[in-house]
């Protein structure tokens, strides 16, 4: 608490406008996600989907659970390119930009831990 009340310094309007533009992120973009099962995880009939790039990865996990008819308590492990587990709050568009193969983001799924 300061002795004299000074209003907080103002951010220039142009800077805030720039921030708003970057906050929109991958708005209106969709990416193709290819789901691949590992081990004894059920195989999907249709395993290619277009997903909004601004979604967080946990949306993809929730979508996948629904597609596979899993209950909340059923284990589901997801990986990118069969190599590492993404964070639930990773942005799908970022994952696509960094790790796409042949214009698709490959998401492997398993009901047991595969690549820890």
């Amino acid at each position: 608490m300061s002795a004299v009340d000074v209003p907080p310094p103002a951010i220039p309007a142009a800077t805030l406008a720039a921030l708003d533009k970057y906050k929109a992120g991958h708005k209106d973009t969709k990416v193709v996600v290819l789901f691949k099962s590992i081990g004894s995880a059920p195989i999907m009939k249709n395993n290619v989907f277009k997903i909004s790039a601004n979604n967080k990865f946990h949306t993809v996990s929730a979508f996948l659970r629904k597609q596979l008819g899993l209950k909340a308590a059923d284990p589901l492990f997801t990986y990118i390119n069969g190599a590492f587990a993404p964070t639930p709050d990773d942005v799908v568009g970022n994952l696509y930009d960094c790790f796409q193969t042949g214009e698709r983001l490959i998401v492997n799924y398993s009901n047991t831990q595969a690549w820890g």
Binding site: L19, Y22, K23, N54, D90, V91, N94, D97, C98
Partner: peptide, 8 residues
């Protein structure tokens, strides 16, 4: 201000 992280 709650913007998603940028990773490219």
């Amino acid at each position: 201000d709650g913007a998603a992280a940028i990773q490219a």
